[in-house]
Design a protein around this nucleic acid. Structure first.
Lengths: 241, 241
DNA sequence: TTCGCGATGTGAACGCCGTAAACTAAACAT
DNA sequence: ATGTTTAGTTTACGGCGTTCACATCGCGAA
């Protein structure tokens, strides 16, 4: 069962890695619009058309880069989650949420590429690698919500409290996923994610600077509100560090 | 007191209007990256360098376009607000919030330009027209919050419930603005705006489509939660239309 | 060991782009 | 009528994504 990767394949993989590394450096240092095939090639000591042996277009390169960024973010969230005991479900939710914010405010251009306005021309097929990476990201939160539910900690609204159309879509999603969670739980899930995304996106995009230089405290108050919204306000804990 | 606008100035103004109209059409139909001086000039039957008589760079043209977009949005919010009686302050807040969402979901590229990740190279001086337009937009919400406060409807957290650093920044902002609102009220203001922005941005950017085809109902539940957060949950009213 | 082929990369070219400089022509003020 | 400001063009430079024809090298098979 040796892997038997040929020498050519190793070189190719190394080239791919370098391409994406240079592209990410351009993204970080020169902004999202500065990712350029010619620039990457120049920095690598080759010519632009050569890159077409690795990606069929600039778009595809960027799409592949977003997968790496998702993986980076997911790794950070998982390692933050895994230092919290398995039975402290709310502690795990707080940990991954804080890891999400930490990564995001530490990597604004990367955050913008993943969570900002989608590049119009960037085709993201629902079954493509980018969509899979996004699903892995969402899965981290969803798994914890599942554990919250099975621990009986999750307070969900009654069925008739939700708009009927919304509940139909929630039910369709619950069926598609096939887990034990009721549709109402996915409303709570979506509402939580919307709030976490909102405060982080505004901070990363600088839309809060009219009042806050530093928004970490606002994020924490949002987390506390979130714990109350989930019905487990007593299990909120401030960050350890 | 005649205006005495010269013929040249009228023509110039008309040209400026056409430039921005064509630029906006490109933004809407071809995406944010498609706004191009050469394309605009071609469509107008002139050559690209001629546009430098009106804007010193493409960036400045885009900055000027964002001001128009803000004005468009602000006009929609104000007219929605002004059909609600002056004494129904919460009704006005709901009206402008819904108008914000309606405009945003109806104009995704425009929303992205204003509220998405800032174009890195786009210099927005704090005293420039773009910043003023943004302040006009925020002022709509802030004015209503002021009226909520003077009506005694606004429930704000106690001073010691807030993080000290956050409270310092809030106090600095309150002083800068100089209104009658206490710092804690601006926390409530920021928290509300963050939630409204979050749900609208996610909807516009398509980040909720994994569960919702249509997010209007989620937005309404967020508004209801917001009314509860403000301490006036009984004054929430569903949209009239 | 040699042959052939696929993988990798180059060079030239096409049509875009923003922008600067020199120049022309029209409109305006005096 | 003259001089000046304004609006626009032509030309040019460098950068971009992408295509195509061509070269070269590594590697498996005869």
């Amino acid at each position: 069962m040796t892997v038997a990767i040929s020498r050519r394949d190793r070189l190719r993989e190394e080239t791919v890695r370098e391409i994406k590394a240079v592209a990410r450096r351009q993204l970080v240092e020169e902004g999202p619009g500065a990712i350029a095939l010619r620039g990457i090639a120049r920095e690598m000591g080759m010519t632009a058309p050569g890159l077409y042996r690795y990606y069929s277009s600039l778009e595809e390169l960027i799409a592949s880069l977003t997968v790496d960024l998702y993986d980076d973010l997911v790794a950070g969230m998982e390692s933050a989650r895994d230092v919290v005991p398995l039975d402290d479900v709310m502690g795990r939710l707080l940990a991954v949420s804080r890891a999400f914010r930490t990564w995001s405010v530490g990597h604004p251009p990367e955050f913008g590429l993943i969570f900002g306005q989608p590049i119009t021309a960037l085709s993201m097929p629902p079954e493509g690698p980018a969509a899979k990476a996004a699903a892995r990201f969402g899965g981290i939160f969803r798994e914890i919500f599942g554990q919250l539910w099975s621990s009986g900690l999750l307070r969900v609204p009654a069925e008739d409290e939700l708009d009927p159309l919304m509940r139909r879509q929630l039910a369709a999603y619950a069926k598609r996923i096939g887990g034990p969670l009721p549709p109402e739980a996915y409303y709570v899930f979506a509402a939580c994610w919307v709030r976490v995304y909102g405060v982080v996106a505004m901070e990363v995009f600088g839309k809060l600077r009219w009042v806050f230089e530093e928004s970490a405290a606002l994020f924490e108050t949002e987390l506390r509100q979130l714990a109350r919204f989930l019905g487990v306000s007593e299990s909120y804990r401030p960050p350890t560090s």
